[in-house]
Structure formats: C-alpha cells, structure tokens
Design a protein around this nucleic acid. Structure first.
Lengths: 344, 344
DNA sequence: CTGAAAGCGCTTACAG
DNA sequence: CTGAAAGCGCTTACAG
C-alpha cells in the first residue's frame, strides 16, 4: 500500500521511465515534466523502494559495518560508538545506509558469510579485529570491496584506514624521555592485535634511538582492559620505573587505581602517558597525557574510501595512516598546568 | 555473477519453485529433492538475495535501530553499545539484520523519513530520545511497527521496553535512608528526558514516604554528563548533604572528582548511590553503589517484541518495564566490604 | 524529450 | 510432490 513509482506515473500523466529519471536527477527531462513529477512526488510523499531499486540497479547503496565480538567487548570505551558515528555520518551524506553486524560467538562462521553474501550490502568496513579472526577467511573470498579499520597482516592488499601506532607509541615514549625520565616502563596492548604489537614496537624503538637498551622487566603484558592495566602496574612496581607508557587510556584507569592503592604519586613519583584520548582521559586525576587517536575521523575516511570503491570499482586499494597526536596534560609532569597532584 | 536460485534449479534439475521451498524449509518436498537441492546449494555456496526475497515476499527481515544524536553524545557510556549488542543478538537469532541510523543534526528531518519509508526495514527500535524530538512526529505517521526503548509521553500507545526509573530512584534513595542518612541530596538527570523526570520523582517519593519533606536546595540539576555531576556536587556542598543520589554513574564520576578536590570522604562524610551500573562503576574508588539497568537485556526484549509484531501484525503493543537492581558496593557505606576510603 | 518492454532474483497462488 | 507463470517495484537500454 505504500506509494509506488507507478502511482506517480499515473497521477502525473508521465511514464514510469520519465518518473524514474526525475527521481534520480537524470538530465534529459523537460522542465515541465520535472516540475509536475516533483510536485506529485511531494504531494503523495513518495519514497522509492530501495529493495526494488537495488535489485534493478545491481547496487543497494548499503554499507556493512562489521564489529568483531572481541572488539566490542574489549573496548568498552567509546571506540565503537565514535567509529559508528563517523561511518554513519559520511554514509548518509552520500546517500548510503549502514547495516550493523556485531559478531556473535556461536553464529560467527555461518552468519558472517550470510552477511557478506546476502546481496543487501555493497561493501564492508571492518573494525579492528584480532589476528587470526575467522572473519579474515570469509573476507578473502568476497567479491565485494571492503575497508579495514586497523591493518591486518593477513590481508596485506586490502584498503586500510589506521593510525600510526608505531609512531604514536614512539612519540609518547620520547616525550617521557625528553622530560627527563630514565626508567620508562610500558603496559602493552593485546598481543593478538596489530595495534598492540605496533605500540610495543614504537616504545622499544624510542628507547633505542635514545641510546637505551630495552629491559624486559619493564614490559608488562596487557590486553587493553582496565583490569590488565591494574595488574600490569603492580607487576611493574618492584622495578621502580619513573614513567610508564600505557598502550590505552582504559588500562591507564586501571594503573591509576593500582597507584592509588599503594600511595604512589602521579606525576611526581611516576609519569604516565596513555593512548587513545577517550573522553574520560581529561577528567582523570591528574588528567591524563595521551596520544589522541581520531577514531571518528577514521570512520569518516573508511566510509569515504569504501563508497568511492563501490562507485568506481577500478579504484586501487588505499591505505590511509593517520598520525596520532600528543595531548599533554598533567600526568606526564611536563605541562604548565601540572601542579603536584597526589593520588591516594 | 553471484549464484542465483535459477542456477540451483538448473544444476539440481528441479524447478525454481521447489528450490525455493527447500531454501525456506517448507514442507511438502520429497526427501530426495530436498537432499539433492541442499547438496547443490552447499556446493555452489548459494546465498539468497535478500533484496529480491524482500521484494517478492513483502518483508525484508531487517530491523532499523534508531539512535538519536543527543543520546549517542550524552551517553558516552556503553549504553549505546550494550543496546546495539542486545538488539543485534536477538535479531540474528531470528534471522533478521539490523540497520543503524544515527541521527545527524542537519539531515535529521529529511533523513529519518527516508529511513522509515525506504522499504528496507520492516520495523524500528528507537533508543531513548529527548521529549519533543522531531523523530516523534515522523514515527506517528509510520505504518510500520516500532518499539521504544524508554517510554515517551507523546507516544502513549507505542510498544515500550523500559526500566522502572521511579522505582529505581526510590530504591536508591530509600537505601540511603535505611543506612541512617538524613540530608539526602540528588543530582538529577536531564529534564528533557523521561528517565530524568522519573528519577527525580522516585527520589522525592522516597523522602516523602519516609516522612521527610523535599528540600529544593538539595536538588541539583544535571543532564547526565560527567561535567554536570561535577558542578552539581559543588552546588550541593554548601547545603552539607550527608548523602547524594546521583541519577547516573557518569555524573557520579564527576561528583567524585569534585569531592576529591575539596577532600570530602566517601562514604564517611557523604554517601553516594548512582544509577546504571556502567562497567567502570565497580572500579571507582570507592566502588560505586548503584542501580543496575539491564541495557543489553532491554535491547534483547525490544528486538523480540518488534520481530513478533512484524511477524504477527495483529499483536497488541506491549510494555515491558524491568526493575533496576540495587548493587551495593562501598560508596554508600553500608557494605560489609566498605572500608573507610578517603578520597583526595 | 518520452515511453514500451525486458529484466533484476526471488515468492506465491494455482494447476496438475 | 512438482512446475509454469505472474508479480514485487524499480532501472535501463532501445526506439522513436
């Protein structure tokens, strides 16, 4: 019972072909016809049926946003949200809709293939996944274009939007070195994720370039969760570090919690730099110095690249690597703002 | 070039009708035919085209998840994420996909109508919105079913999944009363949202039932943001409350921040109860006593009700109101766990 | 500039 | 139990 193209044709007195042209803003229609049809469309509140349109045109104007389970659980930070916002925003601007696929542990295998092949979606954006995620295999056999957010060694030729995690970790560590810290520890991100590995790499590189050797006792393994930041800090404490580069703000929360319990002061006794710049970073006490990762912008770019690839299939795959930005606050002890804040 | 029904028909030697029946698990097909067709489907890795299916059947098996802009920005808490997870989970179980619509300030009006009427989506779930949101008007004229997460006075007959905010605020406040607190203040949620209003109501009701009169100097207006919790607490301090019911955990973070700055101890000097039970509530120092709102479950239920309504349009609209649950931790001073934790 | 017709990949009575 | 045929609401050559 919704209004169809045919209804518009009938009421306006033009053929379906002409109506279709007007709807799609194609040239080669008389002003008179365009006017009349536009009026009728307005008047009858007509909205084209996207399923029919997609079937006929062979393109649905839908983007699939794939969020692997692991990611959505680990990042209880606004990662997911900001990414969705970015993807959604750009997609809407270009008249695309977005379909969401959050992986379910059990159905994963079956369900992802269905999502990739049900013809509803013209291309995909995949939020950073674990290395070895079964989704990778499914992706390898899709004929449809996709863009990864966060690079994936198993898919070296894919289009990617990422931030330069090596450079970011390098800059964070170097900032600590420049402010005079000597024993710089780190709590790492998940070893199962590319970003985790890259952030360790940047940390080590910065130390080496500064002429220091990497001390493995100063490296605590984390997995991006708050809890791993908490335990990681306790693991490091006996080594008496005077600074810690923590591979995510979320873990920094945990580390703060540990430091409070033992009464160690930030930044006086120990300087902290995080990674991500989640909203709460600014409200921690002391406020957290961190590397800002432009997640929303990464979502925008991923959508842009993907839609371009959908519209022009011959486009080469693209890799866009953004630089994270150092946001200096109080926790590193180098800010003008930095008073001497004691944690308890 | 993807495999079609016709391909399966040809290879298997049966007609499209029979193949269609097998695909859809309909009865009245010989075992022999079913077997053969299933094999071919498997072998050719066939996935039905959902657009074609939807067009023919008049149902797309898609759910639209609408997240108003305001909500996605205010709740930088995992609200959005957990809700999506719940909706997504239940939808997938029932063979539905979910389309995401995050409102964009500019395009809102135009874009929402398109989303509601493009024929891609059989029904909608709307995450709690502001009162007076333009989406409400659009919703009033949809022929398609929808379910609200969070009730909406302007849509009194709609299906709703909500938690009982009045009861929750009541229980939170009463808990403080029972533990002996006398001057109980509150920092309210957004006045523009039903939940905000209901939580004030529950707070007031609890005081009255306890024989106390409501003192407006003990009510600070918040809007669910961390910052409003921070300023709200400063506003309350001169009134010397011995307890505060804070209408969201996010605001409780802000309130903690304020209390640290002035050196007031929780729970010794002041008891705090929050609302939501976001993941970080457990990791605050002291850990936050709060009312747990089962957001993910609300997402599950919303999807369940909606899909049922899509499949059986004659179903009456349903209202499911869940009870939030008191989670006692340290900040209220009544837990066995509660040591005497001093904030600084 | 406009229209008649075929076709996108399915489902669904209808006949047998 | 199986198949031929119409139809879902569009787009897109093709002809004029």
């Amino acid at each position: 019972m919704p209004v169809t193209l045919e209804d518009i044709a009938e009421v306006s007195g033009y053929s379906r072909s002409t109506v279709s042209r007007v709807i799609n803003g194609e040239p080669g229609v008389s002003h008179r016809a365009r006017q009349k049809i536009t009026d009728v469309v307005e008047q009858l509140n007509y909205h084209p049926n996207q399923a029919a349109r997609g079937l006929a045109a062979g393109q649905m104007n839908n983007i699939g946003l794939i969020i692997p389970e692991t990611v959505s659980f680990i990042f209880n930070d606004p990662y997911f949200q900001f990414l969705s916002l970015g993807v959604s925003q750009t997609s809407n601007e270009q008249d695309f809709s977005v379909m969401l696929w959050l992986s379910d542990p059990d159905l994963e295998r079956k369900s992802i293939n269905k999502f990739l092949n049900n013809g509803l979606v013209d291309g995909f954006i995949i939020a950073s996944m674990l290395m070895g995620d079964p989704i990778i295999e499914a992706l390898k056999s899709t004929p449809r274009p996709f863009v990864l957010v966060g690079r994936q060694p198993a898919l070296p030729d894919a289009s990617v939007v990422d931030c330069d995690n090596v450079q970011g970790a390098y800059a964070a560590t170097q900032h600590l070195l420049k402010t005079g810290r000597k024993r710089i520890a780190t709590i790492t991100g998940s070893e199962g994720m590319q970003s985790g590995i890259n952030r360790i790499e940047g940390y080590q590189k910065a130390l080496q370039d500064w002429g220091l050797t990497v001390n493995h006792a100063l490296i605590a393994k984390g997995d991006y969760t708050e809890g791993s930041g908490y335990f990681g800090m306790f693991q490091l404490l006996p080594e008496k570090p005077d600074a810690v580069f923590i591979a995510s703000d979320n873990m920094a929360h945990g580390a703060y919690r540990a430091l409070k319990e033992v009464g160690i002061r930030v930044p006086d006794d120990i300087a902290i730099v995080g990674f991500d710049d989640i909203p709460s970073a600014d409200q921690m006490t002391p406020s957290l110095t961190t590397m800002r990762q432009p997640i929303r912008k990464m979502g925008n770019l991923a959508a842009e690249i993907l839609i371009n690839k959908i519209n022009y299939p011959d486009t080469d795959s693209q890799r866009i690597i953004l630089n994270p930005e150092l946001v200096v606050r109080q926790s590193c002890g180098s800010s003008a703002l930095a008073g001497s804040i004691t944690l308890r």
